[in-house]
Structures are given as structure tokens and as C-alpha cells.
């Protein structure tokens, strides 16, 4: 898409301009130190983010990965070996890496050799099952991360997951109990748990409460050599800047989308995640 590559070019150019503008007679020595320091910035590659929402078909993850890329380039804190996100599905790659392990493990369990599975590497506390559930300190299959790192000459992989997208106050959606709903309905629906089916029973209107568009997204930095997740943050943001546009049919590539809270919220989330990363680097909570 023309717009996308122009935006990236703009960001790279801006980064370069910022760098060059520091060259000034009075700050010559500082410049030398700054230039030297920049050579120690860690080499990274950005993997396309995963989308764990029910809106997978909309490819928000591609859009989001591009936004994160822009912010990373602007930050100047990391050196990106590839100027666009690596367009491969990391969870698929991880699955392929582990598929034989699953077959072997299932066979071992069926034959009664459970220790082969439970006392194996995959079951240590540190081993993460998937990229999206990996927490800080856990390890994702090093054979995969090492290979990606080598292919791209990157010390670190940056990856993330979109966990939630949508309008309305969904933070507590599962738990909202309509207080005005009498016991009638609740007592006589067989088998419903206390927490089931009570939310939105009182909701007559189809439009959710308009609290703007929300995004919950994770970003993690993985050391390629040993697969360790060295940093992992979650951002939960909302954007409520635009009024409801009444047009009823969009396609996921429509230009109008750029003006909606959906895209603005994704931008805000990307900014928050990269901003948190920069802050943690600056305050020495993260050293790459």
C-alpha cells in the first residue's frame, strides 16, 4: 500500500533528520559520544503481531504491526534489521517446530511413560506454551527464535498480541449483573452458573455503551539466542474522539477507517507499548 511505505519512509527520514540535527559546533563532543552510544543499540526484528480476538479476519494485526514499526523507528532505541514487520505467523512457525514433540508426547502418555512428558523440557516452569501466553522470564522454543535471529542478524525478536478490540465497556462484560433483573429468570434457567448469562440480560439496546473504542495488546521482547522473554507489557487503551459514522458498509481497507476510533485506538496502543519500552530502557528496568 502506497500510504504505508510512505509513512515508514517518513519515519526513517525523521529519525535520520533528528540524528543529523544534533550535529552542531557547540555540542561536538556530546555528539561523538551520542554517535558511539548509538552503535550499541540492540539489533531487533519485528515479527507480525498475532490477533487473538474474534476479529481475526480484519487483519488488525497487520495494521497494528505497521504502527508499532513506525513507533519503534521513531524511538531510535532499537536498530531494526528489517524495515517492515516479518510477515510470518509466529504461532504457526512455533507449531511446526513443536508438532513432532506433540506427537511423541501423546504417544508417550498413551503408552504410560508419563515422566517422559512431565519431566521433560517442555514442562519446566520457564517453558512457554505459545508466544501469546509467554510471560516475562519464560522461554520460547530457542531453536525457533535462534533461527529467526540468525536469519535476520537480530539479537532480539519483538512480537505482540492483540488481545481485545471493540466498543463498549467490555472490561467487566462477563460480570455485569443486571441488578434490576428479578430472580425469576435466574432461578429457572437450568444449569446456569452464577456468572453465566446474567450480563446484558437487561440490555435492550443493541448498541453497546459508548465509551469509545478499546484495544488491549501485549508486546514482548524475546532474546533470540535462548528464547527468553526479557520484557512483556500489556497496554489497555481507549479512544473516543470521533462520532459514529453512519455509513453502514466498510471494507477492511477503506480509507475512512483511518478517521475512526478503531484506528486511533490502535495508534494509541502502539504508542503506549513502545513508550513503555522506551521508558523501561531509559530507567534501566530493561537492558538489551
Amino acid at each position: 500500500m502506497m500510504n504505508k511505505s510512505m509513512r515508514l519512509f517518513g519515519a526513517v527520514a525523521m529519525g535520520a533528520a533528528l540524528f543529523l540535527s544534533q550535529a552542531g559546533a557547540e555540542a561536538a563532543e556530546k555528539d561523538a559520544a551520542a554517535v558511539e552510544a548509538s552503535f550499541h543499540t540492540p539489533t531487533c526484528v519485528l515479527m507480525k503481531f498475532s490477533d487473538d480476538t474474534r476479529f481475526k479476519a480484519l487483519e488488525s494485526n497487520e495494521r497494528f504491526s505497521d504502527l508499532v514499526m513506525e513507533k519503534l523507528l521513531e524511538s531510535g532505541k532499537v536498530r531494526l534489521q528489517v524495515q517492515t514487520p516479518i510477515n510470518k505467523d509466529v504461532e504457526d512457525m512455533l507449531y511446526n517446530e513443536r508438532s513432532q514433540e506433540f506427537i511423541d508426547a501423546k504417544r508417550a502418555i498413551e503408552s504410560g511413560d508419563l515422566s517422559a512428558v512431565f519431566e521433560g523440557q517442555a514442562f519446566s516452569d520457564e517453558t512457554a506454551n505459545t508466544f501469546s501466553t509467554a510471560e516475562q522470564g519464560q522461554i520460547i522454543t530457542p531453536s525457533l527464535t535462534g533461527r529467526i535471529g540468525k536469519e535476520n542478524e537480530a539479537e532480539y525478536l519483538i512480537h505482540g498480541t492483540i488481545v481485545e478490540l471493540g466498543k463498549g465497556a467490555w472490561e467487566d462484560m462477563d460480570f455485569k449483573m443486571g441488578m434490576q433483573v428479578g430472580a425469576t429468570v435466574l432461578n429457572n434457567i437450568p444449569g446456569l452458573g452464577i456468572f453465566g448469562s446474567i450480563a446484558s440480560m437487561a440490555m435492550q439496546n443493541s448498541h453497546k455503551n459508548d465509551e469509545g473504542f478499546g484495544v488491549v495488546a501485549d508486546m514482548r521482547i524475546i532474546r533470540a539466542a535462548d528464547g527468553k522473554v526479557v520484557w512483556n507489557k500489556r497496554a489497555s487503551v481507549r479512544s473516543k474522539k470521533t462520532k459514529n459514522i453512519g455509513i453502514s458498509i466498510y471494507s477492511k481497507d477503506s480509507a475512512e477507517l483511518n478517521e475512526t476510533d478503531y484506528v486511533k485506538a490502535l495508534e494509541k496502543a502502539a504508542g503506549t507499548l513502545v513508550g513503555d519500552m522506551v521508558k523501561d530502557i531509559n530507567e534501566h528496568r530493561l537492558s538489551l
Binding site: 501469546s132 488481545v163 481485545e164 467490555w170 472490561e171 460480570f175 501485549d218
Partner: peptide
């Protein structure tokens, strides 16, 4: 159920 903003944690 898991609150949606704590999924996968």
C-alpha cells in the same frame, strides 16, 4: 470466566 482484559495472564 476470565475478564477480557486479563486473558492469557
Amino acid at each position: 470466566p476470565t475478564p477480557q482484559n486479563y486473558a492469557q495472564k
